[in-house]
């Protein structure tokens, strides 16, 4: 398929690249952990995309924290606009989008025409983000990808009272030292993360339906617990981690 536009999302954890057809369907995708040399990595990934049919002339929109470092991009947009665009294209509905990325979480109110009405973000704190799970997984010596299933399977949970990632880590150490089963701790950690995100959602007022995007959306426990807390189901976007890059590519299609 011929690529008509490219979108690159340089996030704090992963760099995502999506190529779309003129009809706006994803035709090509790449995902790589973000390297310290952002510019070189972005250009290498883009070179690969531009080697695809149509890719050479495809306009490119960059998003994510590293968006300003993508020298060959036609334009740069924030993740807020891009995630909303990507998810709206997939769902076609107004609602509340919760995007939990590697270092921040955002709640975006999407209007009937797919426009961003309002948004809030976590402030200077990693406790409601993917980093919270990464740090605690490291402490528990568990692969991040398995944490969600472990949390859902656990039969009990311990409350994690610390609202700070660093203090939560010390709290885990104390809990383990007291003999608390790891699964109970993991379930408690997920609950703590969801609490943080829920208060962000509530600050915008309850506006279902709810959608979830960003890397953390791969974690089934987060979606399930968030749905419980909000009293309404939370739909996980397909390929949630790519929604920012997808929205960027869709924006690049526009004149």
């Amino acid at each position: 398929m011929t690529l008509a536009a490219l979108g690159i999302d340089v996030g704090s954890t992963a760099t995502k690249l999506v190529g779309v057809t003129a009809a706006g369907d994803i035709a090509w995708r790449r995902l790589a952990p973000t390297a310290p040399r952002i510019e070189a990595q972005a250009e290498a990934l883009l070179a690969e995309a531009r080697a695809q049919p149509g890719g050479e002339r495809a306009p490119t929109v960059a998003t994510g924290y590293g968006r300003k470092l993508v020298a060959s991009a036609t334009r740069a947009l924030t993740e807020i606009t891009c995630h909303a665009r990507g998810v709206y294209r997939r769902t076609g509905r107004a609602g509340t989008l919760v995007d939990i990325g590697g270092q921040d979480s955002k709640v975006i109110l999407i209007g009937a025409q797919g426009q961003v009405l309002h948004f809030v973000m976590n402030d200077k704190c990693a406790a409601g983000t993917g980093r919270f799970l990464e740090v605690t997984a490291g402490r528990l010596q568990l692969p991040v990808a398995e944490m969600g299933d472990m949390a859902r399977a656990a039969t009990a949970e311990v409350p994690i009272s610390s609202t700070c990632t660093v203090f939560a880590e010390s709290e885990i150490v104390s809990l383990l030292a007291r003999g608390t089963p790891v699964e109970h701790v993991v379930r408690g950690l997920h609950r703590a993360l969801v609490h943080r995100v829920t208060s962000l959602v509530r600050s915008l007022g309850p506006r279902p339906p709810y959608f979830l995007s960003g890397g953390v959306a791969h974690n089934a426990a987060v979606a399930a617990f968030l749905g419980e807390a909000l009293g309404a189901p939370v739909e996980r976007a397909e390929e949630p981690q790519l929604m920012g890059a997808y929205g960027a590519a869709l924006s690049a299609l526009e004149p």
Partner: peptide
């Protein structure tokens, strides 16, 4: 700086 700038840019896009 980064967080403030990001919010500001997103707001201006809105």
């Amino acid at each position: 700086e980064e967080q403030a700038e990001n919010r500001l840019q997103a707001f201006l896009e809105v």
